[in-house]
Simulated assay, not measured.
Amino acid sequence: MIKALSASLFLASLLHGVAQDLPRRPDDPVPAQVDTMFDRGLAYLAKFQNQQGAWDDSMGSEPGVVGLCVVAFLAHGEDPNHGTYAKNITRGLDFILSQQNQSNGYIGNSMYNHGFATLALAEAYGMVDNPKIAPALRKAVDLILSAQKRNRSEAWRYTPDSTDADTTVSGCQLVALYAARNAGLPVPDEAFKKGLAYMARCRGGDGSYGYTSASGGKPTLTAIGVLCLSLAKEKDGKGFQSSVDYLRKQLSYRDRHYPYYFEYYMSQALFHADPETWEEWNSRNIRYLSTAQSRDGSWPGNKGQSFNTAGSLLSLALNYRFLPIYEK
């Protein structure tokens, strides 16, 4: 059994690694402006990362934010073992691993942190030469699954013991579970089915998603819902199409409270759901982010430069498509 498990994990790692090397089409080059912004953004994150692997701004010590920063390096195709930013990636992952509760697998102090940290472990699995990642990822996935089982909505909210749910936390966990499955870990179909059913109950008649119910729909929440359905390959239903139609009308929208969180999800949702609309959105997003980027390479805002910069870079990362979670 041990040999069989080792062989299956090796195969998953191999396939995962191959996915990182898929070339872009010659007729689909990365815009030079994106390269410039990405280079400056990564240089900022590398320069201001502390020795523990986190950042010293308002949210930079949260493992979920560190996870997004790590994913930003990986999304640029950086070699995590020997490349320019290998030490930064290693430090970030080591910080995430240090924040995991060894008894139950919980990372950080909220399911937001846990979900984004799990996503980083899943994207690093098979790429980074660190034997601690596989067992940590398994524990993290098990924590997400056990939290869902305890939740009366069969979804997720702020803590593993929450009995209610919302679409932001639930979407975060679903994306992490899809990334873990892509990495080769077994995740029960039932977990996805129940999580998506909760998300569907929060979708209104106009296709928009609300926070804890079908009322009060918002573009950011709808982008999360569309991304989850896209990763599930469930694009044929009327609900999906109505949600995509809703997002098509929001190309000029900017979330006043969490602008870079919106950018992060909107880019992925449109990329998976509607390539033509994504092309238009991508052009707008490049112009918007190019004017908002600070001279030091970061993006400003009250959530902290590390979170803002990671969110901005990951909204541009669809131009590269190195990560498995970005594959259609």
Score class of each variant (00 low, 15 high):
238 K>V: 12
290 S>F: 06
90 T>S: 13
223 A>H: 02
41 G>F: 05
316 L>F: 10
69 C>T: 07
89 I>Q: 04
61 S>C: 12
115 G>K: 00
111 M>S: 07
9 L>H: 11
6 S>Y: 13
297 G>K: 04
131 P>S: 12
87 K>R: 14
209 Y>C: 03
5 L>W: 14
8 S>E: 15
10 F>N: 15
59 M>E: 15
284 R>E: 11
32 A>L: 11
5 L>Y: 15
183 A>S: 12
213 S>C: 03
171 G>F: 03
213 S>W: 00
148 Q>H: 11
80 P>M: 05
60 G>A: 07
208 S>D: 03
150 R>M: 12
192 F>E: 03
164 D>E: 11
248 R>E: 10
125 Y>L: 13
210 G>A: 05
39 D>P: 01
164 D>Q: 03
248 R>M: 07
317 A>V: 12
324 P>G: 08
62 E>R: 10
308 N>D: 12
199 M>T: 00
41 G>C: 06
68 L>M: 09
124 A>F: 05
9 L>M: 13
131 P>D: 15
232 A>C: 04
120 A>Y: 00
313 L>C: 04
79 D>R: 06
311 G>T: 00
277 T>I: 10
173 Q>F: 05
261 Y>R: 06
275 P>Q: 15
49 Q>M: 14
184 G>Q: 05
4 A>R: 13
89 I>M: 07
219 P>R: 03
63 P>R: 00
237 G>A: 05
240 F>R: 02
94 D>V: 07
316 L>D: 08
16 H>A: 09
55 W>P: 02
195 G>Q: 04
176 A>Q: 00
300 P>Y: 10
88 N>M: 08
130 N>K: 10
174 L>E: 01
211 Y>S: 03
136 A>Y: 06
260 Y>E: 11
175 V>C: 09
6 S>I: 15
45 L>A: 09
209 Y>K: 00
71 V>F: 02
42 L>G: 02
18 V>F: 13
109 N>G: 11
260 Y>P: 01
183 A>R: 01
228 C>A: 13
25 R>G: 14
309 T>A: 03
79 D>N: 14
29 P>I: 11
200 A>Q: 10
174 L>V: 05
65 V>I: 13
293 Q>F: 06
327 E>K: 15
141 V>C: 08
86 A>C: 06
244 V>W: 01
42 L>I: 05
300 P>M: 08
271 F>A: 15
314 L>E: 04
85 Y>H: 10
196 L>H: 05
265 Y>N: 10
66 V>W: 01
27 D>E: 12
147 A>K: 00
93 L>I: 13
128 V>K: 07
